[in-house]
Simulated scan of single mutants.
Amino acid sequence: MMCACAWGLWLAEKEEERREQTLGELSRTNRLLEASLAENAGLHAQLLAQAREAGVLDERRRMAREIHDTLAQGLTGIIAQLQAAEQMHEVPAPWRRPFDAVKNLARESLAEARRSVDALRPEPLRTARLSDALADVAGRWSRLHGLAVHVTTTGTALPMTPEAEFALLRTAQEALANVAKHAHATRVGVTLSYLDHEVALDVRDDGRGFDPAGLDTDDGSPPPRCGGFGLTIMRQRVEGLSGTLRIESEPGAGTGISACVPTLPAGSHA
């Protein structure tokens, strides 16, 4: 039989093992909690940024529409009436100078109103089409990271809302940021495709890839590769426009992110 001294020593050892196991579990739980808090803080920050971004975009959109629907349309009507009057009756010589001055002023004001509408479009879409803006973003990314990005546009450009253009541009920027952070890629491609009723953006790389199923973790650990935050924001932004976002990847086989948003109906204008 085990003597009292040995029994006590054995109990002490078991108690120490249980204590160390408990401490280990507590340490692991704390690490998972810290990771979860960091993830939540990062997501919260990005959601706030997205809300501010959306608020600014909505206000710009409202102002642009107001200028277009009131000032620009009113000036267009004035110019049309002046032209109709000129076609119906010969403008008397004493009136010709002020008549032409009014016409020119209306045209200049209309051009200024249209410039104001364009200026309210988000950077870098103020002075460029979406395809050109994507090429500019890819070029700056390439210069920063020393890796060429092949940019391709297919199909005929279709009318889109500024929000849709903005969403696709931000998706490309976020996807390229993820490539730089995680992919270790040697080739990157960005494709903008104008289809019948939607516009698709694809960003693909030949990097190390990841398991998309791991993006939704149940143990509180941070998701791999894209960190979860960027993809969450991308998905919310695209799906908020009745679009779709797909992620295709597997370890060692690269990653593809595809976003599709609907175009405006035929005859509509952004």
Rank of each mutant, 00 (worst) to 15 (best):
V102C: 07
Q87V: 12
A64F: 04
A111N: 03
M63Y: 09
P251W: 07
G74T: 03
T217E: 15
P92I: 14
E239W: 12
G207V: 02
R65S: 05
T29H: 03
L192I: 01
L201G: 05
L169C: 03
L9E: 15
A133G: 01
G77Q: 05
R115H: 09
L231P: 10
N104H: 06
A135Y: 05
T152V: 02
R235Y: 11
A38V: 00
T154L: 04
L195A: 15
F166Q: 13
P265K: 00
H269P: 02
G24S: 14
Q46E: 15
D58K: 10
E53F: 12
G267M: 01
V91A: 14
E53D: 15
G24I: 10
E108C: 03
E34C: 00
Q236T: 06
P98G: 06
M2V: 12
T232G: 13
E13V: 15
I79P: 02
A45G: 13
T70W: 11
G240K: 02
Q46G: 13
G256Q: 05
L147P: 11
T127W: 01
G214L: 08
K14T: 12
G252I: 09
A80V: 00
D196I: 10
L192E: 02
L9Q: 15
A54V: 08
G155E: 11
G227A: 05
L169E: 03
G256T: 04
L201V: 03
V188T: 11
A270Q: 09
A185H: 11
A148C: 12
G214P: 04
L245D: 08
R114H: 10
E163V: 07
G77V: 03
L241M: 01
Q21M: 12
L33C: 04
A49V: 09
L33H: 06
Q46H: 13
R97H: 11
I78F: 06
V137E: 13
D69K: 06
N30C: 00
L125E: 01
R121I: 00
H44M: 08
G267C: 02
D196M: 13
